[in-house]
Simulated assay, not measured.
Amino acid sequence: MAFPKFATPPPPSFHTVLKNRIHDYFESKGVRSTGNFRLYSKALFLVAGFLATYIHLVFFTPSTAWAIVECLLLGLFTSAIGFNIMHDGAHGSFSSKPWVNTLAASSLNFLGANTFMWKMKHNVIHHAYTNIDGIDDDLDAKPFLRLCETQKYYKMHRYQHLYFWLAYSLLYLFWIFFSDYKKYFTGKVGDIPLKKMKAKDHITFWGFKLLHIFLFVAFPIYMLGFEDWLIGFLVYTLFSGFVLSVVFQLAHTVEDTHFPVVNTQNNKVDDEWAIHQLKTTANFATRNRLACWFMGGLNFQVEHHLFPKISHIHYPRINKIIKNTCAEFNVSYIEYPQVRHAFVSHVSYLKDLSRPNSGH
């Protein structure tokens, strides 16, 4: 399929002005736009916490109640590694050194998913064509959820604002045991063909999938027994899935974000790319230090979508530049003050789409 094209405004465009101002900021401060000691120390803490929790669960077999707590903690560490290490690494913003970015991105392989598939789905498609139904694979949760008004309505959707939490909890399990394999064997992300995989990509795919099954399925069953493993694994993966889903959904599927429709006559989107990103993306809880630390700046989603090559540790500082430029160009900037406000908006949005012929 042919990718749609974005509008080309007369110079100087909003995007050009914004890029120049962000470039000038880093030049004037004399700092790199990639990660620094703050990010690296956080990464070490998260990896150490994950490994310590895994080792204690598998080798030292805590009591049932404590084991469940540790499985939840393992889910938090898994999510945080994804938000802070893998995400920056996959975008090339974790470090100025390519091999370090590759290593950081590879944490996703260790956790059971696949970096090659993620980069195609997330970096190439989602970041370019955010919230465009039929292209952005993040909107494809059919038939269980209806995430924009152009999607087909099923009777089950009338209750989606009540059962969404169950669907979100299944994300991680679905991701590592189904969707990666579907992309691999069909050679597509939705309807978009994958770029050709090299031999090393195939080896990495199968090698890490087998390693993950050994470390998180076979070996724990051997050490703990099937029943204890199953309970712990479900607690861990369902909690991880819910946390991952909620953070990603609050950034794009809320009441104030847009879901542009491509003009079928000329295959174009009405706005220039940067304006499109601002219309389809929302920030939340940007003054909450704990949220910022845990989510790796994904609550600064606007900054991330406009400048994915910049590490999330810089988002609070470039936030004011982007807001001021938006005000100057009379461009809306979507932001919710707290997590709960964004969450309520997301649930309200799901409820709105739970009725036929509805949408915002």
Rank of each mutant, 00 (worst) to 15 (best):
K5T: 08
P10Q: 10
P10S: 09
I22H: 08
Y25G: 04
F26I: 02
K29V: 01
S33Y: 00
T34W: 11
T34S: 12
G35W: 12
N36P: 04
R38F: 08
Y40V: 11
S41Q: 07
A43Y: 00
L44G: 14
L46R: 02
V47R: 10
V47W: 05
A48N: 13
F50C: 10
T53F: 10
Y54T: 15
Y54G: 12
I55P: 08
L57G: 15
T61V: 15
P62R: 11
I68C: 12
L74K: 05
G75H: 06
L76H: 15
F77S: 04
T78N: 09
G82P: 01
H87D: 07
G89E: 00
G89Q: 08
G89R: 00
S96H: 09
P98C: 06
S106Q: 08
A113I: 05
N114C: 11
M120H: 14
H126V: 01
T130S: 14
N131W: 03
I132Y: 09
G134C: 03
I135Y: 09
A141P: 00
H157G: 10
H157S: 11
R158H: 13
L162H: 09
F177P: 01
F177M: 02
Y181M: 09
F185Q: 03
T186D: 10
T186H: 06
V189F: 00
D191W: 00
A199M: 07
G207D: 06
F208E: 02
I213A: 14
I213V: 13
Y222M: 07
L230I: 11
G232C: 02
V235M: 08
F239T: 15
S240F: 12
G241K: 01
G241V: 00
S245R: 06
V246F: 07
V247D: 06
V247R: 01
Q249N: 08
V254N: 06
E255G: 11
D256R: 07
T257G: 09
T257C: 12
H258F: 12
T264M: 10
Q265W: 08
D271H: 15
A282K: 03
F284V: 05
A285W: 04
A291R: 07
F300K: 03
Q301C: 14
H305Y: 03
S311N: 13
H312N: 14
I321T: 15
I322G: 13
A327N: 14
A327C: 05
F329Y: 15
N330T: 12
N330I: 07
N330M: 09
E335T: 14
R340Q: 11
H341G: 09
V344Y: 13
V347F: 05
L350H: 10
D352E: 14
R355H: 14
R355P: 01
